[in-house]
C-alpha cells in the first residue's frame, strides 16, 4: 500500500499546520449574454491535510463553480488559490492539466469512465499522462484499495454502478493526489451502494489520511464527514464541524 500512499495517519497529524487548500477572496463572474452572473462572491476557505469536508448548498449556490475552481478545471475571476502552498489561480492551461494530474483526484456523479476500456486501463490513465513507470502495479494496488481486484479486466458496461464508481475512485487516488474531489459521488447510486461508496471514502481518509472534499446537496453524505461548509448565493454562510460523524462499517 505504501507504494500508492505515502501519507499515513501519523504524518497527517504533523502536517495539520499547513493547509492543502487555501482560498482567499475567490470570485467568479460569468457573462451570460449581456448579464454578469456572480457565481462566487468572495470565498475564503482552508482545508487541512487529512480532513473530510462536505461543501453543501442548494442548486445555484455556486458549489459547482467552487468545485470546478478547486479542481483546477476553471480559474477564478479574482482571489488567491493555493494548493499545497503553491499559487494555482493564474496558471496556464497545460500547467493546470499537470496540477489536475498530480495533485487532484476527481470522482464524478456520472463516474465518467472511458467507454470500452477495462478497469485496469481506466485507472492507468492518469499515470499515462504523468508518464509514470510501473503503471500496472500501481493501478492494481489502487484497485485493491477499493476492493475491485476481481474486476480489473472488466469494461464499464460489465460493471454495476457501485463498481464503476469504485473504478473511478481508484483512478482518482492512483497518482497520490493532495486531495480527492468528489462531486455528488452517490447521486447515481441506490442507498445501499451509496453507503458502500461513502464507506470507501471514510476508510481511505481514516486509514490513509487522504484529504476528501465532497460537493453535495445530500445531508446523508454530509453526516458522514467531519466538517460541513454551507454555500449560499456564492458565499460561505456556515462552516461547522460535524458533531458525531456517522461511520459506515467497512
Amino acid at each position: 500500500m505504501s507504494v500508492v500512499l505515502q501519507t499515513t495517519p501519523d504524518s497527517s497529524t504533523t502536517a495539520v499546520t499547513m493547509p492543502v487548500l487555501r482560498l482567499r477572496g475567490i470570485t467568479k463572474v460569468y457573462r451570460m449574454g449581456s448579464v454578469d452572473v456572480h457565481a462566487l462572491r468572495g470565498v475564503s476557505l482552508d482545508v487541512y491535510r487529512g480532513e473530510m469536508v462536505a461543501i453543501m448548498g442548494p442548486s445555484g449556490s455556486g458549489k459547482s463553480t467552487l468545485m470546478n475552481i478547486i479542481g483546477c478545471l476553471d480559474q477564478p475571476t479574482s482571489g488567491s488559490y493555493q494548493l499545497d502552498g503553491a499559487e494555482v489561480s493564474q496558471l496556464a492551461d497545460d500547467e493546470l492539466a499537470k496540477v489536475r494530474n498530480q495533485r487532484i483526484g476527481f470522482v464524478f456523479q456520472s463516474f465518467n469512465l472511458l467507454p470500452r476500456l477495462p478497469a485496469l486501463r481506466q485507472v492507468e490513465l492518469p499515470l499515462i499522462y504523468a508518464s509514470t513507470n510501473h503503471r500496472r502495479t500501481r493501478a492494481t494496488t489502487a484497485l485493491e484499495l477499493v476492493g475491485l481486484t476481481d474486476r480489473m479486466h472488466h469494461r464499464p458496461t460489465e460493471l454495476s454502478g457501485g463498481q464503476q464508481q469504485r473504478v473511478a475512485i481508484a483512478r482518482a487516488l492512483v497518482n497520490q493526489p493532495s486531495l480527492i474531489l468528489a462531486d455528488e459521488p452517490t447521486g447515481a447510486l441506490d442507498t445501499r451502494t451509496s453507503l458502500e461508496i461513502i464507506g470507501i471514502f471514510q476508510r481511505l481518509n481514516r486509514e490513509h489520511g487522504i484529504t476528501v472534499v465532497f460537493v453535495t446537496h445530500e445531508h446523508d453524505i454530509a453526516e458522514h464527514t467531519r466538517r460541513t461548509i454551507l454555500l449560499r448565493d456564492g458565499q460561505i454562510v456556515a462552516d461547522s464541524p460535524v458533531a458525531n460523524p456517522r461511520e459506515v462499517e467497512g
Partner: peptide
C-alpha cells in the same frame, strides 16, 4: 475526462 485526469492540449 482525459483533460480532467491530466491530459494536456
Amino acid at each position: 475526462i482525459r483533460k480532467a485526469v491530466g491530459a494536456r492540449r
